[in-house]
Design a protein around this nucleic acid. Structure first.
Lengths: 211, 211
DNA sequence: TAGATTGTTAATCGATTAACAATC
DNA sequence: TAGATTGTTAATCGATTAACAATC
């Protein structure tokens, strides 16, 4: 294993570095440094170099990094040099917004189907993506080799949906429902928790006042 | 300062504990233990006790915790015993979904206005919340003492919107735009990064394959 | 009392930061 | 060569885990 326990925080930062490098590329910048990247993403240059060092040597001492090269390397590390098929379960407000979110396509994610239980929604399309009944999830995943599922249903149904996704062979789940769900080992799970994020803010606001 | 550097991870977990305790309350459960909470949220009992210990003694040795009491204490810690006014900037798909998101109200957040630059959107309402022109942000924040702003505009406009919010006296910002924005010290900032979350998943999927 | 479970301390683990030799 | 910046090691810092005395 050439992988000595890489912090998750490092992976998150690599993703942010990559986005920043893409910005530089678009501006026509060809060369950069750990200092410039750090400034662009709000970190330290030592941390940028450390994060990159887990995966190899991408720069030139005394010179810095080639923007395009480095970005391609990070994209490769993150697994984004291929396109990923994604299904979204829940075609409510949030599910619909996510389905139509342009940022996913730019970063190599293709939403190929949305699923709902509401018969009035089924059959219509969102930005060219069809809404199917939940009963079709398994076929869709198996026939297309879908590896990522997004859960955007109310909390009460989230575990049930997770179970369907797992049974269908999904590899990873991004959960937006405000509830803790459990999946077997081997299935990756991340939670995007909208209220938790706001609550960290309110805690911090109150702390400031109290100081 | 009776606040010896509390890890942000602790605050995030407290928010999740609180949600779990609310579930228990709704089921009519009156008493619980650090072990039960840990099981419910996928952590360890030692960590639950440690997290709570930063703020006081909420349990009884040999007995456990009173569900309602503990939840109220955590809610107080997080600053949620009052209601918070929130404005959302951006009435596109994501901003609209967030405006109509029911989970916020349940956790003491009231969205009192949405702002956009698109004249065709301005004047209509989303779930009873009016869409105003961006030029009205400052008045709205100042007149209502709004403390939290949510950014749901494209990346290119995010910094500009952040500047407006800051200038209007906002205390905290939740940023959904996929770009690093900067705010002065004293303004809290958190980022909810949709693509970064997917990219951590793809990295992990690829890692598993490689092992 | 015996059993259970907290609150807290100490030990461990892991991540970040600082420093600097290597080298372009 | 002198200046710049990387890659890497060692030092520091912080968070988690384990253990257990306190006590209901």
């Amino acid at each position: 294993m050439r992988n000595p326990k890489i912090p998750e925080a490092t992976i998150i930062r690599l993703s942010v570095y990559s986005r920043f490098l893409t910005q530089l590329e678009n501006k026509g910048v060809t060369n950069t440094s750990s200092g410039q990247i750090a400034e662009g993403v709000g970190g330290s240059s030592a941390q940028v170099r450390k994060d990159l060092a887990y995966f190899g040597e991408f720069g030139t001492r005394g010179v810095g990094y080639n923007v395009k090269d480095l970005n391609q390397n990070i994209i490769k590390i993150l697994g984004l040099s291929k396109r990923w098929k994604v299904v979204i379960v829940g075609a409510g407000n949030l599910g619909s917004a996510l389905t139509q979110y342009k940022g996913f396509k730019e970063r190599s994610f293709d939403v190929i189907g949305v699923f709902d239980i509401d018969p009035t929604r089924i059959g219509s399309t969102l930005n060219g993506v069809s809404i199917y009944p939940v009963s079709k999830i398994e076929d869709m995943i198996k026939e297309n080799g879908v590896e990522i599922g997004i859960i955007a249903v109310p909390a009460d149904f989230a575990q049930e949906v997770a179970d369907i996704l797992v049974k269908s062979g999904i590899k990873a789940i991004l959960n937006f429902a405000p509830v803790v769900i459990s999946v077997p080992r081997g299935v990756e799970l991340r939670n995007v928790d909208l209220t938790v994020n706001l609550e960290v803010l309110t805690y911090n606001i109150e702390m400031q006042k109290g100081e």
